[in-house]
Write a protein that binds this DNA or RNA. Sequence first.
DNA 1: TCTTCGATTGTCT
DNA 2: GACAATCGAAGAA
Length: 201
Amino acid sequence: MENLSRNFYLQPTQTVARRLLGAILVHQEPLGTTTGMIIETEAYDGENDLACHARSGKTERNQAMYLTGGHAYIYFTYGMHWMFNVVTGPQNYPAAVLIRAVKPIHGLDIMRVRRSPIEKKHWCDGPAKLTTAFHITNDLYGADLCNPASSLVIKNGADISDRLVRTTSRIGIGYAPEPWRSKPWRFLLAAENAPSLPDDL
DNA sequence: TCTTCGATTGTCT
DNA sequence: GACAATCGAAGAA
């Protein structure tokens, strides 16, 4: 199973968001390795997208969005939650895909400790939930997901057919004006539709 | 199952 | 000083 390539992340943001469905998020930690299949994403596409954090230009917080595709953009919000995004597109084009949900595969014992007493089906079904279960924090800000030596990578997973994918408008961006608020840039795969995996992870 | 609401702090205006 | 790419508990139905 191979890491997704740099070229993969240089595709248009919406394409990357759609194609990340079925891919495998892998975090190697001292305690062990946690993995999960990505089942929900959102695309944020450049300074012209008024729902994107880069809408007001480059700041200290969002500078990672200006890196070349394939890096991690991580930020803190609502006073208590970490969010994990994957930067897309060429350098200096601020776009990213928010990873909103994954289906846990490996490292379940580690996740159980972190997410207890919540029941398993809710361990990773929200963007701040999966960062807790996978222990993704600001330490990984700007990390290169294409570097094989990186502790956080995304691997090629299952090919997801269009009939299993739903799109909706993005969540939590009520401040954004139209047409951005209604752009169908959220991509979902129902957890029960997520294919099972080869067991060579 | 659905809806409401409090928690809590970094970042930008 | 306002507010945020949210979560989870609690209460209603």
